[in-house]
Design a protein around this nucleic acid. Sequence first.
DNA 1: ACTTTATACTATGCATCATACACTATTGTT
DNA 2: AACAATAGTGTATGATGCATAGTATAAAGT
Lengths: 112, 112
Amino acid sequence: MSTLLNSLTTELRRGTLTLAVLSQLRTPQYGYSLVQLLEQCGISIEQSTLYPLLRRLEKQELVTSSWDTTESRPRRYYVLTPYGIEIYQQLKKEWEKTSQELSLLLKGEDNE
Amino acid sequence: MSTLLNSLTTELRRGTLTLAVLSQLRTPQYGYSLVQLLEQCGISIEQSTLYPLLRRLEKQELVTSSWDTTESRPRRYYVLTPYGIEIYQQLKKEWEKTSQELSLLLKGEDNE
DNA sequence: ACTTTATACTATGCATCATACACTATTGTT
DNA sequence: AACAATAGTGTATGATGCATAGTATAAAGT
């Protein structure tokens, strides 16, 4: 893939990562599990992208986190706050709207 | 709309503007007409956002531009280059892929 | 003993978008 | 004739998020 296409795709993905992560935090998850969960769904995300994102979300009070030290390895679990749930649902609506609008624009002569 | 939701939505839109603009430049358009064309489709874009975008696209050789001075008001028309068409189609595919993946993630308990 | 997996995290730079401007010429209205 | 509104093209600056490239540790597997 050309570097140009690559950077355009990056920009296109931007913001969707947040939405994807929020969607998975309705049930508690820790960073590492999130990476794999999303990978399974075809969305690859680097840890070095995810952790700062989680930090942001926590700062914005969309998620809360807590350490679980009962297992052999300590894990920090993240989960949506009520406010986070609300924002998630609104953001989801926004995405559906944008998605539909774009579908309309892109429809038409599909010459392959 | 809260400022947080606003900024999240902005991020979500990011990159989609490029795709939207590219999709309209299969036929020649000038800046002002593009704004209105997209507006009709529900996508609002400020001129001060569009013009720098067009500049970028031209620099990346995805579009070319030329002045039309035959009308009463001079207009600068933009249109896709062959390379631009190619990139557009690939980017479109990327979007469709991402879009589908996200649909999957967002599906599920729609408690309204 | 060595390597891989699991797990968490930081720092820096680049690109895009929003916001706020500046500018001109034509059309429409009073 | 004066004025406002529309049509039209642009620039500068700042905020922000993602990618890239790292650091670090402990458990499990060989």
